[in-house]
Amino acid sequence: MTLLQAHSLRFSYGVQPILNSVSLSLAAGEVVALLGPNGSGKSTLIKLLLGHLRGEGAIEWEGKDLNRWSKRDLARRVAYLPQSPMFETDQTVEEALRLGRAPYWGAFGLESERDVSVVRQISVLLGLDSLLQRQMDELSGGQRQRAFIGRCLAQEPIAMLLDEPNTFLDLRHQVELCRLLQKLATDKSIGVLMASHDLNLAGAFADRILLLHEGNLVADGKPGEVLQADLLTRVYGVPMERIERPMGLPLVVPIA
């Protein structure tokens, strides 16, 4: 089932074009990695899809034009995790998770039974139940990122847009995060769109890769098709080599 359809998106800051006619789609249960160098328009694209920026082109979530979604309704369907999410230093993990229920709160911010039970389920699912009373600034980077994923999940979304969620994580936590996203896609059939700089991690975990170069979508396909040495050399501006492996996917690495 297609969750998102976007056609010929254009965006520019003043006269500086950021995106030129980008079209993409996202289906339920699919993990899509959004790759491209710094300044290629990854973050801008995600913000356009959420309606935080207004550009040209058509965006449809579940077949309904983005402009016809109310902020609140869209927040119940689509969750967003920015590159460096904000948190109050004295905020507990539980409070952070509960914020994810904001699109469901009634007047005066009153919480329902369901709000409470959803937060409890998610904390168990992500193994956060023992950390609920800890303060956010006491957590390790990996734990904190899991709490933020939990906040997104509390929105009970059908799609998650994540902007470089791996940035501050060590190798093990990067792999764990990707496994978690893959599991969420499979088990809850959430569509995941994730901007990333790690080509091989994206290759290992994504069902599909979108490659942006100077505001143009230069590739959209299976990891094996997109991660080509000549294409990546052109896009990233460094010589790249593709190393085939007897088992598993090929690796792409820059040659110094």
Partner: peptide
């Protein structure tokens, strides 16, 4: 208390 983008994504205008 969150960033603007996060608040918007949580359905707050």
């Amino acid at each position: 208390l969150l960033s603007e983008a996060e608040a918007e994504a949580l359905g707050v205008r």
